[in-house]
Simulated assay, not measured.
Amino acid sequence: MADVREAEEPVDESELAIEGALRPMSLAEFVGQQKVRGQMQLLLDAARIQQRPADHILLSGPPGLGKTTLAMIVAYESGRPLRLSSGPAIQHAGDLAALLSSLTPGEVLFIDEVHRMARSAEEMLYLAMEDFRIDIMVGKGAGATSIPLDLSPFTLVGATTRSGLLPNPLRDRFGFTAHLEYYEPEELERVIERSAVMLGVSVPPAARAEIARRSRGTPRIANRLLRRVRDYLVVHGRTGADIAAVDAALDLYDVDRIGLDRLDRAVLDALVRRFRGGPVGLSTLAVAVGEEPDTIESVVEPYLVRIGFMGRTPRGRIAMPEAYAHLGVPAADSVLGFDDL
């Protein structure tokens, strides 16, 4: 069964092309994150007036809220080229040195999952961000020498879903740090409205509201659900969506009325029925549903905690009363009662 969710899964080129086409190209087109947009606009305007590269930018927050899009906007509004990389791809200082030395003056370097860079690369990045210089070690042992290499001035845009894992020296070298928040339903409706026009689909307000309600506060998920609704309309020879079409399309993909999908419900079901509401350890819960602990912790758990269905305690995960109500299961005494929280 397919899950419409944030996960590390293969995406075909047509899907990537559509996702790219739906991305806004400027801060004026970007929906939501009003405070961050205002701060970034000031940062970019000041850099343009002073004819210098913009300060380094750190974007943190859950997946799918627009960090990569904002990095692209920084490059577009600065009139500079954009270089894309990721923390897992930079596992040696030499990888970073090769990347930095190839940058052109003023280029914007985007490093996704910057918290997953190798420690040796992080330490090299400190000097590069501050002085636009790196030291290359030549030789080994007592005969090793350090050769300084000057870099072209650049703007680093780092993105992270776990800012707490960034070392303080690296975090302090960013001139501007922004935390992206989950979207309100009204903001998601505006995202869906814009995307529907670009996809050539008629989605009236009631249908937009229904898609937004199931989108977990995340624009990327909203756009993916919209594309599934569009597919349903194409297959059934329709040009416009209504509530019935949205329900039929998203029910097919196991996305329920509040955005929970198959894996979310499997986790809740195991927690409520198999473990009597908990507490239960993350690894045990992952084994019970046949998933990796990292997937449960980074993909499923944040949303369940945010909507009040799951609680985290020193003794493990527990099901909250709202989870019992959603599953239609009478609340039972758990190993750790709600009054003990």
Rank of each mutant, 00 (worst) to 15 (best):
E6V: 12
I221A: 04
E210G: 02
A97I: 13
L70T: 01
D242K: 02
D112G: 03
R227P: 01
R224S: 14
F132N: 14
A121Y: 05
E9C: 05
L151H: 11
A325F: 08
D172Q: 07
V201T: 14
L43H: 15
L260R: 11
A144G: 09
D150F: 00
L282Q: 10
L16I: 09
G143Q: 13
Y76Q: 14
D135P: 00
R317D: 02
T177N: 03
V300C: 02
L16M: 10
R80P: 01
G143T: 08
R273K: 13
M1G: 14
T177H: 07
E291W: 01
A196C: 00
Q39C: 08
I90P: 10
I211Y: 01
F176V: 06
G217D: 08
Q41R: 15
V114W: 01
I73H: 02
R37V: 11
E184T: 09
Q50C: 09
D242G: 15
G32A: 06
S14K: 11
L59F: 06
P81W: 07
L226E: 08
G311Q: 12
S60V: 03
M124Y: 02
M72A: 14
E301I: 08
M40K: 01
V299E: 13
G237F: 04
T161D: 13
A206S: 12
V4C: 04
A248D: 15
S215Q: 06
P205N: 14
G87S: 07
L156E: 06
P302T: 11
P330N: 13
P148K: 00
D231G: 07
E122P: 07
